[in-house]
Structures are given as C-alpha cells and as structure tokens.
C-alpha cells in the first residue's frame, strides 16, 4: 500500500469537493483496501464518505431509495426489501460473507472490481489495471471469465451479485457530480470493456454515487440462483436473477439478469420477449437460452459457462413457472 492522505468528509458537498480535487472515495473499503494492499489501486488521496449521511433507506413514491452507504447487511435485513424486493435481499445474501456484508456498501458494491486473476496480479498483463499491457486471461487460465460482452482487450467479469438483482429490478443509480445530479439506469451503469477496459462504469470524474432507487414492487415471483464452486463464500460462476409473473398458465411478464456470464451484469430484452406470452416448457427455456447465448463465446477454460448458463436459466425458469416446482 502506498502512502496516502485520508480525509473525512463531513457531508456530501465536502465529499464532492474532495473528489473534484482528485481524491478517491472510500466507504466500507472491503474492495479498495484489498486492491490497495496489492497496489492494484494506489490513490494518493482518500476521502472517507462514511459520515455523509447517505446511509438511509427511505420510501420513494412506491419505490425505495437506498443510500449509497447502506451496508449490504442492512439492505438485506430491511423488512421492506425482504418483503417487496426479495430478489435484492437474496442476491446480497448470496454474496461474500456476513463480515464483508457488514462493511460493504451499496455504492461500493456497484463499483466492485473484477476478480480476474490477471487483474489481481501486478506481474501479469492486464488492460484493465495497466492499459496497453494486453490481456493475460486470453490464452491463460480463464475459467471464471466472461462469455458475453467480451473484447480483444478484456474478458473479465463484473463479479458481484447485488447489481445483477438491481438490473432485473429496473433499479437506477443516483449520483451527484460537479454538474449536478444524474439518474443512471443500472443497465447503463457498468461498461463493457471495448477497447478501454480500465473504466468499469460510467461514473464521471468527481461524481459520487448517492444511492440506488428501486421502482415500485413488481409483485412477481423473484428468484436469485447463484452457481458457484463452494456452497458459500465464493464468487458466482453464473448467476440468474429472475422476476417473473404468470397469468393463465403463460408467462405474463419477466425480467432476467445474469451475473458472471458477461463482462457486466447482463440483461437481454430479447430473452424476455422470447418468453413473454408463452406457456412454459423445457423447449421454451431452451429457446430463451438460444437467444441469450447467440453471441456467447468461450475462451477455453470457461466454455462450460455457455452450457451452465443454459441449464441455470432452465432451472430458474422451471422453479418459477412449472406447477410442481422442484425444490432442493
């Protein structure tokens, strides 16, 4: 860890001033301190935003506004979240460990960086960490990497769970910056790598996440299915977030998002269109998977994710729609 100054912002404006002057925001620090120890991140100026008051969960019309500093644990423990947006609580609880969730924040979790082993190792080439050095994962050990949204420059996934649920729930990221407030749909928050993998998201310089807004509850069946190598405390190989409603034996409405499958939390409206209005069946689920995976490309070790995504989607849709949902 390189030496740095640490200031404590008294309020949001104070924080914005510091960000404007080039400081990096720290909240829970569970990802940033990890990266700083390895000098993958090496800010020379940190500003703590822990005292900026952005730690409230409050109603927002029929929806809910979750402050950027609300911890993952508090968000998942909130009675309203658990009742009306259970998908979000499930996704958060599927991630990390209780200790990490007690410290990690809503805003910080959105900005979580990839777990790519080449990003995490400063002896290796990585365009995300050190632009222009190449991508070590291409041709390397890429079992956990993306099969959708990749580029020649980067195949790393966004590793988190919370954002995948937020994406399926049509949530928005609220920010404040030098040019005022912005509302960014979660689907437009994370950036596919393209030829500049160093920028994970669309936050602008000096901009601060102030919270996340959930729209009115959908009332649908909500399922977060996370598939991973351990039963707990492991990043997803593939995850599926589903919010789905049935009517007269047909799928009336559905939102599906996928984690650790693409370079960003992945949502493809064409998949949902393929399902809506149809009677659920294994064949239909297969058709939806065909749509989802039409452009999927494996890189060797991660080829299995294409099969896994198909089967995880089928399992999720079967659980949500078939009359005798099979429970494990």
């Amino acid at each position: 860890m390189k030496a740095f100054t640490l200031d404590h912002a008294a309020d949001a404006q104070d924080a914005l001033d510091a960000l404007g002057a080039g400081a990096t925001a720290i909240a829970g620090g569970t990802n940033l301190v990890d990266l700083m120890k390895l000098q993958i991140a090496a800010p020379d100026r940190l500003v703590s935003i822990r005292r900026t008051g952005l730690d409230q969960i409050a109603p927002d019309g029929e929806g809910l506004r979750i402050g950027a500093l609300v911890t993952n644990a508090d968000c998942a423990a909130d009675g309203r979240v658990r009742r009306d947006w259970p998908l979000l609580a499930q996704a958060i609880l599927a991630g990390a460990s209780p200790q990490l969730r007690n410290r990690a924040t809503t805003g910080g979790n959105l900005c979580q960086r990839t777990r790519c082993g080449y990003f995490y190792d400063t002896t290796q080439a990585c365009n995300k960490r050190a632009p222009g050095t190449g991508c070590g994962a291409l041709g390397g050990f890429n079992r956990i990497h993306a099969v959708l949204g990749t580029s020649d420059a980067c195949i790393a996934t966004y590793p988190g769970d919370m954002a995948v649920a937020l994406l399926a729930l049509d949530a928005e990221v609220l920010t404040q910056g030098p040019d005022g407030e912005r509302t960014i749909p979660v689907g437009q928050f994370h950036r596919q790598p393209g030829d500049d993998p160093s920028r994970d998201n669309t936050l602008l310089p000096g901009e601060l996440i102030t919270g996340v807004r959930l729209p009115a509850p959908s009332g649908g069946m909500q399922i977060y299915r996370k598939v991973r190598d351990r039963a707990s405390y492991a990043f997803a190989l593939v995850s599926v977030a589903a919010d789905l409603a049935m009517e007269d034996g047909r799928i009336a409405r559905c939102a599906l998002a996928f984690g650790s499958l693409g370079t960003v939390p992945w949502r493809d409206r064409a998949v949902e269109q393929a399902l809506v209005g149809e009677t659920p069946s294994p064949a239909l689920f297969d058709k939806a998977a065909d749509v989802l995976l039409r452009d999927a490309r494996g890189f060797g070790e991660n080829d299995f994710k294409i099969v896994l995504a198909r089967r995880a989607l089928a399992a999720t849709l079967a659980e949500a729609t078939l009359s005798n949902p099979a429970k494990g």
């Binding site: 720290i26 301190v33 007690n102 410290r103």
Partner: peptide, 21 residues
C-alpha cells in the same frame, strides 16, 4: 475470517478496514 472483530456489535473483517475509519 481469522481477523473477525465486532464493531458496534457487528462482525467485520478487521484486515480490510483502515484503522483511521
């Protein structure tokens, strides 16, 4: 998790938290 401590009653990984925070 070997570094788990309680901060205001909540368990956290003390290794990932800067003391000055």
């Amino acid at each position: 998790g070997a570094c788990t401590v309680l901060v205001d009653g909540r368990r956290i990984n003390s290794c990932l938290s800067l003391a000055q925070l």
